[in-house]
């Protein structure tokens, strides 16, 4: 019996440790597993009238509670710090991938390297919190991910380029049309004083709002509604990013852009950004656009 008990403890701790190496989400599963296992054991003890496993003089119930408290505390302590480390490691990997992509395309977006402030901001935002549970493990891969409602979270490299192109300063006011998961808003919120975001799909707006509140982004305001007219109350904006599909650039948004401000619009499908459109308003209010390819590619070869 003692042997069996020891084995159980070893297996349980081993299991918890393995989960600790995995992820926080998995830890919850591990705890659920432990709870279920304990319940099953309890039932089987009752059914076969077997003697208690360890004779400590304590009542069964109390003994179980202590056992539970120990396990949960141990596992949670391990997992929280371990998860944080793990995701931090993954985030650093993601930043390396972005830097590598920048080196390839630097000339094309008129940048020699990524703005370190943008990379630092992306290094702080827990991207895994913005994707569905089952995709948390791949959240830091340099790829777009589906987030439900037919929406996606953009590829980190594209997020970096778009944020970089906006050229924001710390006291800026920025508007986003198309909140989606809220990831882009969180990245910008790390960089600017006031971040406003409008989402047309109500469940997404609610979800993103809750998420950003939970993560402590106090400088982000999210509104459910039609982004065409911008957010007059907080206009003008130093920068605007339009991630929602639009057949044309809404004139009210151009009007709400400060002189010297920039607007960035990714053009393409939900998963693949084909080009970036940048709207630039000069200090005298004249508006021009720039079309940028987020990749190093020259359509002509040889002699041209």
């Amino acid at each position: 019996m003692r042997l069996r008990r020891s084995c159980q403890v070893i297996v349980t701790l081993g299991f918890a440790y393995w989960r600790y190496l995995s992820s926080k989400r998995h830890c919850f599963l591990a705890l659920r597993y432990l709870r279920d296992a304990a319940a099953t054991r309890h039932q089987s003890d009752d059914a076969t009238k077997m003697p208690p496993l360890i004779r400590t003089g304590l009542h069964d119930g109390r003994r179980r509670r202590i056992r539970w408290i120990c396990l949960v505390t141990l596992t949670a302590a391990f997992s929280t710090s371990a998860d944080a480390d793990r995701y931090q490691r993954l985030r650093l990997g993601m930043l390396d991938a972005i830097r590598a992509d920048y080196q390839e395309t630097a000339v094309y977006i008129d940048k020699n390297q990524a703005d370190p402030r943008v990379l630092a901001a992306m290094g702080r935002v827990p991207r895994h919190q913005f994707v569905p549970d089952k995709l948390q493990d791949v959240a830091y891969e340099n790829r777009p991910l589906p987030i439900g409602h037919g929406q996606t979270i953009s590829q980190p490299y594209i997020v970096a380029v778009m944020t970089d192109l906006l050229g924001v300063q710390s006291d800026d006011r920025v508007l986003e049309v198309g909140t989606g998961s809220g990831y882009q808003a969180a990245v910008l919120a790390e960089l600017v004083a006031h971040m406003y975001s409008i989402e047309i799909v109500e469940p997404l707006a609610i979800q993103a709002n809750k998420r950003l509140q939970r993560l402590g982004y106090a400088n982000v305001a999210i509104r459910h509604g039609d982004g065409y007219y911008g957010w007059e109350q907080h206009a003008p904006f130093d920068a605007i990013i339009v991630t929602a599909a639009a057949s044309h650039i809404p004139p009210p948004l151009i009007a709400q852009l400060k002189p010297g401000g920039r607007m960035v619009i990714p053009v393409g499908t939900r998963f693949l950004v084909q080009e970036l459109l940048m709207v630039v308003k000069d200090s005298d209010g004249a508006v021009t656009t720039r079309q940028l390819l987020p990749v190093r590619f020259v359509p002509l070869t040889g002699g041209h």
Binding site: I200, D226, Y228, S247, H248, I249, P250, P251, I254, A255, V279, V287, T289
Partner: peptide
């Protein structure tokens, strides 16, 4: 019913009409 479609691809950036 709530949000107009406003389909006008190719509209000039100088256009102010909806």
């Amino acid at each position: 019913e709530q949000v107009p479609l406003r389909h006008a691809p190719g509209l000039s950036i100088k256009a102010a009409v909806e």
